[in-house]
Amino acid sequence: MTRLDDDANLFESGIVNSLFAVQLMTFVEKTFGIEVDMDDLDIENFKSLDATTAFVLRKKGHRGD
């Protein structure tokens, strides 16, 4: 198994398929009870595990450190 670093760019890594973006969006919405809408369409929000974590925390109203 290949280990994925938390800051690795998911979309440049070649490990994701054409449905990954919407599957990730659905996972985030379902797991954290948030809604991803058109204002959230920014690759910086989803490009890595770190970026997605920060996005979820912002949507949930947590302050970034």
Binding site: S18, A21, V22, L41, I43
Partner: peptide, 18 residues
């Protein structure tokens, strides 16, 4: 424009196709 430029094939089309 629906969604944002750059996201039509990764986000907009897959919802419709689904």
């Amino acid at each position: 424009v629906v969604g944002k430029p750059g996201f039509a094939l990764s986000h907009v089309a897959p919802v419709g196709l689904h």
